[in-house]
Design a protein around this nucleic acid. Structure first.
Lengths: 177, 177
DNA sequence: ATCAATTTATTTATCGATAAATAAGGAGTG
DNA sequence: CACTCCTTATTTATCGATAAATAAATTGAT
């Protein structure tokens, strides 16, 4: 048995899962700790047993999401000429499997809590540098500009999903015959 | 005298101005009507004399911002091959003169109030269609894809400003010698 | 095995703060 | 007076956070 043998209801993870969904749906401020607790099936103060503050809970959710994104990108193997496309697919896949987290990440910069902005800043910076590094290593010319386009496209996809405006990403739209 | 005869302290506009700045800096939820009132130099309940609710005030601010953006784009005259660049400059200029409003617009989709999302959706849709129309009329191939890139770049610029990450827009960065 | 000691998991009750919104009233001026 | 501009006073609601208590489970010695 591993030292930390978690059994059936791992409360902390349940709380993280519920919080991820709620934060993504309702945003930081409209997501109350009471709602998170209710979604898990515990009482509101119990949430504070695992996370000292609501902000700490949010940061934990955000961290997990960013980690998943970094991991998804790191798993992409591809010849240089298809790298950008393949990383795009990886992003889309994650958007399918962990929609909440991805949309949360792409909006996290709009939350005016200093600590959250700081976290968002650091994570975006890391992701940007990682992608640029991979593009550069693949011999892609203008790696920086391509990375910016890649990230900008990610932001646009998130926008189109949040606002339910599929027209914003025409390359995914059914072509007019 | 014109029907709408505003004299010295045009409270409604002062409130809109103060609200724009505060909403952009602090976001929708951390901006209180008391802060807006204080910035103008009136009392908190008086704000409700001009706007029935805080949400209505926000929507008014947002509308004004979107209008300014649309107007800025509409004022761009350019030969087809420079159109996209010129519109980019127009965006940058507006970012210089009305930074608050622009950043507010580019984050408005992250505010989970249904009415605000709806407004954001409608305005983004209009702007997208207008730009695409202009690109298409200028004979730009792949007008839709170019428009998406244009909007995506706008989102990226806003992100880089909000997070203070200039590296995200390398074409504005001082080149390493 | 039994029973006391202690920890783990969770709840109930509640405080203090803040914020949006309403209602009613003053104050200056033509 | 009456009209516009603005304030004071107050209400209602919500939320994050803390403190204290309970109950169940585990451990450890006899």
């Amino acid at each position: 048995m591993s030292p930390k043998d978690d059994q059936a209801p791992n409360r902390k993870e349940q709380i993280l899962d519920a919080a991820a969904q709620l934060f993504a749906e309702l945003g930081y401020y409209k997501t109350t700790t009471a709602l998170v607790a209710k979604a898990v099936g515990v009482t509101q103060p119990y949430v504070f047993h695992f996370f000292k503050t609501k902000e700490e809970l949010f940061l934990a959710v955000l961290d997990r999401g960013f980690d998943r994104l970094v991991y998804a990108f790191s798993g992409v193997e591809s010849p240089p000429d298809e790298l950008a496309d393949r990383m795009g697919y990886a992003f889309d896949e994650l958007l399918g499997t962990h929609r909440n987290e991805i949309l949360l990440i792409m909006q996290s910069h709009a939350i005016p809590e200093p600590a959250i902005r700081q976290a968002s800043k650091e994570k975006f910076s890391i992701i940007y540098r990682r992608i640029r590094e991979r593009f550069a290593n693949a011999g892609i010319p203008d790696a920086s500009a391509q990375t910016s386009m890649f990230v900008g496209t990610g932001l646009l996809i998130a926008l189109s999903q949040v606002l339910e405006l599929p027209e914003l990403i025409p390359w995914c739209e059914p072509e007019a015959d």
